[in-house]
């Protein structure tokens, strides 16, 4: 054993784990590596950036509005003289936090419902109709109702910032799991009939629970990967129209939204003034 670890030629014989395999395969995919690097850079920037670029993102300096790129303002300033770079960093932090948590939530809900529906035939109909219901619900009224019902309670319990964070995560989470659920269910249905499940059953894999979790669940990996694309589909519905999405939600999202707008404001910026 000691020999094998020393001899380089014998290295591949080392115990292969799934993680190592995945990592090895991943390293060969150049696009993947580049993507991962970019993502890592974004995380690092967003986490440590504010300590290095120590400008307050909400500090106004109206005399320095609409500045171009300079040393003091690496991305220039917006129409109120706020530092864009600091805003992008701060906005990125919120976006990342909200995005990742909401996505995990929607994946969790979607996968749970999808697997249950695909596997437990008795629940299938009910769960899929629930999915249909959520797909049909109009988003804006739903948001307004959720805000009306929960904003003040959450605010009182968790304070304004955490409260709104939870609200946003909750809203995005519960409005974007449906696609995942449907695809996972479809995949489970198809995988269920594959030979290896039959094999697992026939060799007496202990109980149905174990069977579902260990054997069927890992298979639909491909559709789930696709479902990562789910959350952005949110944008196709009512959300992005100006900032018409209910006020408080804009609170955290707006930073990123505003920054994004500023980046290509020359043509697309919309700052429509209120009617009354």
């Amino acid at each position: 054993m000691t020999d094998t670890t020393i001899a380089p030629a014998a290295a591949p014989r080392k115990q292969r784990t799934i993680t190592a395999d995945v990592f090895r395969q991943f390293r060969q995919h150049r696009g993947g590596v580049i993507g991962a690097c970019i993502f890592l850079t974004i995380i690092l920037l967003v986490v440590f950036g504010p300590y290095i670029h120590g400008v307050d993102p909400s500090a106004l300096n109206i005399r320095d509005k609409n500045q171009g790129i300079s040393l003091a303002h690496p991305m220039g300033t917006d129409n109120l003289g706020r530092d864009m770079f600091a805003q992008v960093l701060a906005g990125g932090r919120t976006s990342l936090a909200v995005g990742v948590t909401a996505m995990l939530l929607s994946l969790l809900v979607g996968t749970t419902i999808g697997v249950t529906a695909g596997y437990v035939r008795r629940l299938d109909g009910w769960l899929m109709r629930l999915t249909d219901l959520f797909l049909a619900l109009p988003l804006l009224p739903l948001l307004l109702v959720i805000i009306m019902l929960f904003r003040d309670t959450l605010r009182a319990t968790f304070g304004p910032e955490t409260g709104i964070f939870l609200l946003i995560v909750f809203v995005i989470g519960i409005t974007s799991w449906m696609q995942t659920a449907r695809i996972v269910r479809g995949a489970v249905l198809s995988v269920k009939e594959h030979e290896f499940v039959l094999a697992a059953k026939s060799i007496g894999t202990r109980d149905r629970h174990h069977h579902r979790i260990r054997v069927v669940l890992p298979r639909p990996r491909l559709p789930v990967r696709f479902s990562d694309l789910g959350p952005p589909a949110l944008r196709r519905r009512e959300l992005p129209r100006d900032q018409s999405l209910a006020g408080d939600l804009a609170g955290a999202g707006a930073v990123a939204h505003r920054a994004q707008r500023q980046l290509y404001r020359r043509r697309t910026a919309r700052c429509s003034r209120p009617a009354h």
Binding site: R129, D132, L137, P138, P141, V145
Partner: peptide, 23 residues
């Protein structure tokens, strides 16, 4: 057959949601 009650329930939930919304 199952779709009919489902749709009724969905229509009720949508209606209630819209009614509840404060706009």
């Amino acid at each position: 057959m199952f779709a009919v009650p489902t749709l009724l329930v969905i229509s009720f939930i949508i209606f209630a949601l819209l009614d509840l919304a404060p706009n």
